[in-house]
C-alpha cells in the first residue's frame, strides 16, 4: 500500500481524517488546558505569598 493510498482511505479520506482530527484536538485540549491553568494558579499564589511576606 502506497502512502497516497493510505491517506485516500478508499475514498473516505474526508470522513475518516476529520473524525480522527477532531478526536485528537479535543483529547489534547483536555490535557493541556488544566496544566496551563494549574501553572498559572501556582504562579499567582506564589506572587501573593511573596507580597504577603514583604
Amino acid at each position: 500500500m502506497s502512502l497516497q493510498e493510505f491517506f485516500a482511505m478508499g475514498g473516505y479520506a474526508f470522513y475518516v481524517w476529520t473524525a480522527y482530527g477532531i478526536c485528537f484536538v479535543v483529547l489534547l485540549a483536555n490535557i493541556i488546558l488544566p496544566i496551563i491553568q494549574r501553572k498559572r494558579l501556582l504562579r499567582h499564589l506564589a506572587l501573593k505569598q511573596k507580597r504577603h511576606n514583604l
Partner: peptide, 26 residues
C-alpha cells in the same frame, strides 16, 4: 491522565490557603 490533571488543578484551587500548598510554593 486527563482526570488526574483536572483533579490536581481542582485540588489546588480548593486548598489554596492550606499549609501544604504554602510549603509547595516555597
Amino acid at each position: 491522565i486527563a482526570m488526574l490533571q483536572r483533579a490536581r488543578l481542582e485540588l489546588l484551587q480548593r486548598e489554596r490557603t492550606a499549609n501544604w500548598v504554602k510549603k509547595l510554593l516555597t
